[in-house]
Design a protein around this nucleic acid. Structure first.
Lengths: 342, 342
DNA sequence: CTGAAAGCGCTTACAG
DNA sequence: CTGAAAGCGCTTACAG
């Protein structure tokens, strides 16, 4: 005995109202009625009835029957910067272009939330899972494999799935080279943010050191891998200043969140920045407006996601393979990048 | 070049492996086995088998059977600023706390995408739909009503659903009052961004004008409702400067995206800003570091979303009712605080 | 051209 | 205590 207030309009109601069989109604609703030689007049009646009833098929019932969910899942740490916001928006667009409904879960860099979110997405039978910026992609990769979900890593690669990443070493190398231009050969330098022993940070450090070597800079750089929190970056700068009596002439900032700490430090002590050049491995429109001598790099957000979908479309697994994308643009004028803002 | 054909593990496989009936397996899997007097030994066997098989129930099959999807939907324009990023993160947390899987769709302020996204969410049978920053909430509200989906508007209210919004008029009034402090009584003023005839913009304009009136400022303010695009705000400032020969002494910026345009304009012409005070109806950490004399307001993102869920939990419809929340914090750039207050 | 029927993977009232 | 069976709302091969 059902006693729901608004009872769902089902395909049965639709068929009844249109005076057709259920299958005819189904064929009309998903556009295959001509192929099934339903008469135009019948199709018309069904569409009319659907209109009047406000009928819309249940995506879940359809998915269950068809064995495919039409859902596309993605995991990111959060949405609070342009890199992740760009990834998720591109992901949404790519998913919709393929008739998939995007589901994005954020994990706040919390390892246990990561696995929980992955499990809920897998339980929804997502057809693809894009994993970005998690603590341990392998666990998620294996979970997906077990459940037959196609999984791809972005930003941080893993041995158990196909991965697509930015050329961290090359990008950091190029940034550092530009940073050192027009500075004295043995200028003091520093690297701020990220976590040592972490994939991206290590590679960026390598690129940073390589550029220093090539420039013949023999000064020991300050390497401050203080994590991603803005406050930690702020404090690291403060300590550095107190110990050395000055900030380094050239600073490579590893991630926009660390740059946030630098911005607040700059606001507190603008005079400490005179003659100082900064480069940042990421981009933000407001950050680019600060009157700090800064070069910003923008990762190829669109390319990263597009590559994931191309891999998905091709249907070939390529587990363990890593595609590396060059950072797209080195930004000195952010004005041309804000055009897609509304 | 191989595609693994992993057949889905169903509850039937689980029951078979554990040597129990399907219903027993089901009871064990969703934790109600004690209530159904399944022996501990049987439960143990089922859990063991589930572990070995990597069995996880299909959320969609369960949803279909139970008549509830455990999905929570939200619509936002995009994720590229702290206001919307904050809303979606709070929404995710609230949904997960209730055992719901969050699905967030962004629409890039495109009216036809808005309705498409709403339809896909409704087709997924979301149990609640939170609508923020769309062009026309009413259409979506009606769609939901027809399909029995509980719908709530955030930011922009509508007559057909419960709505929760920031106190736009009060916030703008307060911002403007602070803006005018220590400025001459008849200082030139301006309002930049948003769209005239739009709900939030009109109310903020009202608050702005009210504060001007109270201050006895009889100067005609420049009201530039140029939309939300940073480039439009930038151009509006440029035009204003050319026409008037100077920017107004006090500027209220309606939304952080318009402030982005102001930031780029400031970068191009910092000298135009001397003696100028700015207030912004939104907040961004980098924007707050710019050396512009700025007061920023932060909407109560947490409160807005929490109120939605409280309404959802209560189960009462309250269509047409509007709950208004005061902006939570007024953030002032500490760099500029020394001369003023605190 | 159209309809009756099986079945996707679950849950749960009911019978044993 | 446990199992057989109905049914959620669809799709589609198959029979008529």
């Amino acid at each position: 005995m059902k006693k729901s207030i608004t009872k769902r309009v089902t395909i049965r109601d639709l068929a009844q109202k249109a005076g057709t069989s259920i299958s005819a109604a189904s064929f009309v609703m998903n556009g295959s009625w001509e192929r099934h030689r339903i008469s135009a007049e019948t199709a018309q009646r069904v569409q009319q009835a659907a209109q009047e009833l406000g009928y819309q098929p249940s995506a879940r019932a359809r998915a269950l029957r068809q064995g495919r969910s039409s859902l596309a899942g993605m995991i990111v740490p959060h949405h609070r910067n342009r890199f992740f916001a760009g990834l998720t928006e591109q992901f949404e667009a790519g998913a919709r272009a393929r008739g998939l409904v995007p589901i994005i879960g954020s994990t706040q860099r919390n390892p246990s939330l990561e696995i929980t979110v992955a499990e809920t997405l897998v339980a929804q039978d997502v057809e693809i899972l894009v994993v970005a910026g998690v603590y341990d992609p392998s666990r998620i990769n294996r979970l997906c494999r077990k459940r037959g979900v196609r999984c791809v890593n972005v930003d941080l690669p893993g041995p158990d799935s196909f991965s697509v990443v930015t050329d961290n070493k090359g990008g950091a190398y190029e940034l550092t080279r530009r940073l050192l231009r027009s500075l004295p050969k043995d200028a003091t330098t520093g690297f701020l943010g990220g976590a040592s022993r972490e994939y991206a940070t290590e590679l960026r450090l390598e690129g940073f050191r390589k550029a220093l070597n090539e420039a013949g800079n023999t000064n020991n750089p300050a390497e401050l891998c203080c994590g991603y929190a803005p406050s930690a970056a702020h404090d690291a700068l403060e300590t550095l200043y107190e110990e050395a009596g000055a900030l380094p002439r050239a600073l490579l900032i590893n991630s926009i969140t660390a740059f946030e700490g630098l911005a607040t430090y700059w606001r507190d002590y603008p005079s400490h920045f005179s003659g100082l050049r900064v480069a940042c491995f990421d981009w933000d429109p407001f950050a680019a407006c600060l009157p700090i001598d800064t070069i910003m790099l923008r990762q190829d957000v669109e390319g990263l996601i597009d590559t994931c979908f191309e891999w998905f479309d091709a249907g070939v697994e390529r587990a363990g393979e890593i595609v590396m994308l060059p950072p797209q643009i080195t930004i000195e004028d952010p004005a041309n990048l804000t055009s897609n803002e509304k």
